[in-house]
Structure formats: C-alpha cells, structure tokens
Amino acid sequence: MASLFEGNASEWVGKVFTAEPYPVTSVDIAKFAISLGVRDAIHFDRAAARRLGYPDVVAPLGYYVVVRLSRPHLIDITCLARDGTSDYDMPPSRTTTRMAGETLVEFRRSITAGDRITLRQEITGVEEKQGRSGPLGVVRYEFSYLDAGEEEMIHETYSRLVR
C-alpha cells in the first residue's frame, strides 16, 4: 500500500511551532460570541464581567480555537491550498482531504480581554492505518496556550486526519 504521506513523515514527530503572541481583545471576543449566537453579558460588558470577578470581558470556552487557527495560519493568501487550508504543520501528503479527529481540551483558567496568548504546538505522532473507508493518516498534536507569564491556560490534544 502506497503511503499517504510523502517522504519520511516520521521525521515530523517532535517538530515544535511557536506562534507570536495572540492579543485577545473585547472586539474579538464579541465577534466570536455573536458568531455562536451567545448573548451572555459577560462576553460583551466589562462591568458585568467584573461583577463576577473577571478583569475584563470573558471569552466563551470555545474561543481557544481562534488562537489555534488564527495566528499560525496568517500566511500569504497565494500560499493557501485550493480548498483554503494551509498545511504548514503536517507532513506533505498525496491526498487532499483533511478532517479533524478527536480533541481533548483542559481548561486551567478563562481567557479574558487583555490576555496575550502564546501558542506552542508540537507534533507528537504521525501514523497510517486502515480506516473503515480506506487508508487513513493521523497526525497528532499537543497545544499549550501560555499567558504572558508563560503559565499554561489551556492544554489541547488534537489529531488531524488525512484521507
């Protein structure tokens, strides 16, 4: 069976990517909340957030995805694949279908406006196996979301599927 990946994909295991800090703003949080249809005042109103002990407006828990997808993928638009994605963080593949696999997120503290989050990403595994509908490539990642003091706010284990 021909490999789904080009070259020696296992050499990608252990690669670490660290993005420039992502500045979290109240506007960004409001946009994310609106896109989900979430209306809780603590996502829009600093006073409401402060009454609950937060320093500023609070991001919905799912906001970490903004940090994961935005900063690392700020590349020239001509460098994107035809489907709009970028593959900077995975071994070159002979296939074009990409899917999200299982995600595990551990929350240490909330994200609030004013945070500057540094994303550290490590490839922890590359493997190929036989899926229900044919060969399947799996790229595994660990993400650390670090605050300005380099304390981990969120830890994420994620896999990306290639078919």
């Binding site: 996502h43 002990g53 919905p60 503290r109």
Partner: peptide, 16 residues
C-alpha cells in the same frame, strides 16, 4: 483548587 484561579480578579474557567 488551582492557584491560578485563586488569583484576585481571575475567576475560574467555565463559569459562564
């Protein structure tokens, strides 16, 4: 239970 969420002004995650 967690030191970082005990800091003044920082509420626990998930409190929405």
């Amino acid at each position: 239970a967690q030191p970082d969420v005990a800091s003044p002004g920082v509420a626990p995650a998930g409190g929405t």
